[in-house]
Amino acid sequence: MTKTLSKAWITAGKTALLAVGLFSASVSFGLDTPEGRVILTVSGNISETNADDTAVFDYAMLEALESHTTVTSTPWHDQQMTFKGPLARVLLDTLGAEGDTVRAIALNDYEVSIPVEDLLEYDVILATHANGNPMSVREHGPIFVIYPYDEHPELNRETIYARSAWQVNRLIID
């Protein structure tokens, strides 16, 4: 009798653990809800969302992601600049993104496809600050896709410059 009872409890325990495991795997607590003005909307093949099937971010939410600073020259500035913002690959990881490309879309509807491979190989940032100041729309904000040009000379070419979209407010993961 004890052996049968023990087997029953073990079976029930395994079933309960399996149910808890399945429940926790299927429940997503998602991202925080933005408290400030939304500056970035991410859609496409992502598993973490906070607004229907998209992920929306305000400045505070982007700043809460692992930040990175890049000091580099660009074709658009007369001097070396210091850019700060989350690493693009950290954002993708945070959202459970899966895909081969990220389409970056600017306020003026300029759109460019960025290979995810670039974001994994290089410290590409979604810059929200330049020289210590938040970037306004007038200064290429709210988000400027910045590659570490000075660290990797192979990035100094037109193809990569075209991927460095500014005034970005949308990303689509394909």
Score class of each variant (00 low, 15 high):
Thr94Trp: 01
Met81Phe: 08
Leu126Asn: 05
Glu48Cys: 07
Asp52Val: 06
Met61Gln: 06
Ala88Gly: 04
Val168Trp: 08
Ala55Thr: 00
Arg163Met: 13
Arg157Pro: 05
Leu18Tyr: 00
Val90Thr: 15
Asp93Glu: 15
Tyr149Val: 00
Thr101Arg: 06
Asp58Val: 08
Thr101Gln: 11
Ile39Asn: 03
Ala51Asn: 13
Thr33Met: 12
Leu120Ser: 14
Glu98Val: 13
Leu107Arg: 07
Gly85Ile: 01
Thr70Ser: 08
Ala162Arg: 02
Gly21Pro: 00
Thr101Ala: 10
Asn169Met: 05
Pro142Val: 01
Ile39Asp: 08
Ser73Thr: 08
Pro86Val: 06
Ile172Leu: 14
Gly30Ser: 11
Ile146Glu: 05
Asp58Phe: 09
Leu155Asn: 10
Lys14His: 03
Asn133Val: 10
Gly99Ser: 02
Leu171Ile: 08
His129Ile: 00
Thr49Lys: 14
Ala104Cys: 00
Leu120Asn: 15
Glu154Ile: 02
Gly36Cys: 14
Val168Cys: 10
Gly44Val: 07
Gly36Met: 10
Ile125Asp: 08
Val124Gln: 04
Ala106Val: 11
Asp53Tyr: 06
Glu139Lys: 03
Gln80Arg: 14
Ser43Asp: 13
Thr101Ile: 07
Gly36Ser: 14
Tyr59Val: 13
Asn131Thr: 07
Glu66Cys: 02
Ser113Leu: 11
Thr74Asn: 00
Arg157Trp: 05
Asp100Gln: 11
Leu91Asp: 00
Asn131Lys: 03
Gln167Trp: 02
Met61Ser: 10
Met135Val: 14
Pro75Ser: 07
Glu48Arg: 05
Asp53Cys: 04
Thr11Ala: 15
Leu91His: 01
Leu5Phe: 05
Thr101Asp: 14
Ala16His: 05
Ala51Tyr: 14
Thr159Met: 09
Ala19Glu: 05
Ala162Asn: 04
Ala25Gly: 11
Pro75Glu: 12
His140Gly: 05
Met1Cys: 10
Gly44Glu: 04
Ala51Gln: 14
Glu151Asn: 08
Val168Gly: 00
Val102Ser: 04
Tyr161Glu: 12
Asn50Leu: 07
Trp76Gly: 07
Arg163Asp: 01
Pro142Ser: 08
Pro115Cys: 03
Leu40Ile: 11
Thr128Pro: 04
Phe83Gln: 12
Thr70Gln: 04
Gly132Asn: 01
Thr69Gln: 04
Thr128Trp: 01
Ser26Phe: 10
Ile160Cys: 01
Val145Tyr: 00
Ile39Trp: 03
Gly132Ala: 04
Pro148Ser: 07
Leu17Gly: 15
Leu62Pro: 04
Ser164Gln: 06
Phe83Lys: 09
Gln80Asp: 12
Gly85Met: 06
Asp53His: 10
Val124Pro: 01
Lys3Gln: 12
